[in-house]
């Protein structure tokens, strides 16, 4: 089985999708279903975060089981700053990204000394540390989480408390983030990451400072997840320990696998598929997790390479992996 290093972003796919996402709120508001704007924001946020995890797992071969730590860290930074009276998005959001990036730098520097199963376990361990630290901080809500007084303040006249406006902010970040990701994986840096995934020892012997590239990817992915956390906490108006939990890390990994590990659109498709499935099942039964579990199991057993490969096989329109 051959693997391609090129992952072209086709304008013929990306631009219509972007256009559709731009007009989406007008359509659902016209048919008076504003809830879908909220759902779409949520999907876009997780598409961004899952894509950042796909950079690690799918392109760098680093199966991190602790990505929720950075998502949650970003969320908590915004919520904690808000509690201390700093509501400005211009301060809080960069701070969330910076904290997540620094956390990723520290955690990555230690974790990336290990490989394989040990890497999975040590990233999980660090995420658990972060989780328990926040749960035990009673001043910041402890088990109950920390709710936001309002959404972050951008500028007079721009009120993020409007779900539609917030949607567009999320869309701007998610689409820019995805575009940068698409540039990244095809750049020299992206090639090196994929080379490391394929044969790390060989990359070292070719003269690449492997550790530096892996750490770079880990920090980039962590920072992106931090941004996702800043957006998510505004969406939910609550920073909850659940965002940091290992099941959240599991859900993020699930999105990546579901969408297609190492495929350009894998994170996006996985996030959309998982969250839509969740909504759909939840509409029918409170026991939607049972259905979700069954579907996931079926995917692993019968579509091992995720949805992106199915789309890829389906025709030229989907050949963007």
């Amino acid at each position: 089985m051959g693997v391609q290093l090129d992952h072209p972003l086709h304008a013929a796919v990306a631009l219509p999708l972007l256009a559709a996402l731009i007009v989406f709120p007008f359509v659902v508001l016209a048919i008076d279903e504003p809830f879908y704007v909220v759902l779409a924001s949520r999907i876009l946020i997780f598409a961004l975060v899952a894509t950042s995890l796909n950079l690690l797992v799918g392109f760098g071969g680093m199966v991190s089981f602790g990505h929720a730590a950075f998502l949650g860290a970003g969320a908590y930074v915004v919520a904690i700053l808000m509690q201390h009276g700093v509501a400005s998005a211009w301060i809080a959001w960069p701070a969330a990204v910076a904290v997540a990036a620094l956390a990723a730098l520290a955690i990555g520097a230690v974790c990336l000394r290990t490989r394989g199963v040990y890497f999975i376990m040590i990233t999980l361990a660090f995420a658990q540390m972060v989780y328990f630290v926040f749960v035990s901080l009673k001043a910041y809500g402890g088990d109950d989480g920390l709710s936001l007084a309002s959404r972050s303040v951008v500028a007079p006249g721009i009120d993020l408390n409007s779900d539609t406006l917030f949607y567009y902010v999320v869309l701007a970040f998610a689409s820019t983030g995805f575009f940068l990701f698409a540039r990244l994986v095809n750049s020299r840096f992206g090639r090196v990451l994929q080379g490391i995934r394929e044969n790390e020892t060989r990359m070292e012997a070719l003269g690449y400072a492997v550790h530096r590239y892996k750490l770079g990817a880990f920090v980039l992915a962590g920072a992106t997840a931090g941004l996702g956390g800043a957006l998510l906490v505004n969406q939910n108006e609550l920073a909850s320990p659940g965002t940091l939990s290992w099941t959240q890390s599991g859900m993020l990994l699930t999105m990546v696998i579901l969408g297609g590990v190492g495929y350009l659109w894998g994170g996006v498709m996985g996030a959309a598929a998982l969250l839509l499935m969740e909504e759909l099942l939840a509409a029918y039964t409170i026991h939607w997790q049972l259905g979700l579990g069954l579907v996931l199991l079926a995917v692993v057993l019968f579509a091992p390479n995720g949805l992106a490969t199915l789309a890829r096989a389906a025709g030229p329109g989907g050949r963007d992996g």
């Binding site: 797992v57 199966v63 990994l253 026991h287 979700l292 579990g293 199991l297 692993v300």
Partner: peptide
């Protein structure tokens, strides 16, 4: 299968068992 698939499949089993 790789560890990734195992994680996903057994994560699914966990959801199924809980529910």
């Amino acid at each position: 299968r790789d560890h990734l698939s195992q994680v996903l499949a057994t994560f699914a089993l966990l959801l199924i068992a809980n529910e």
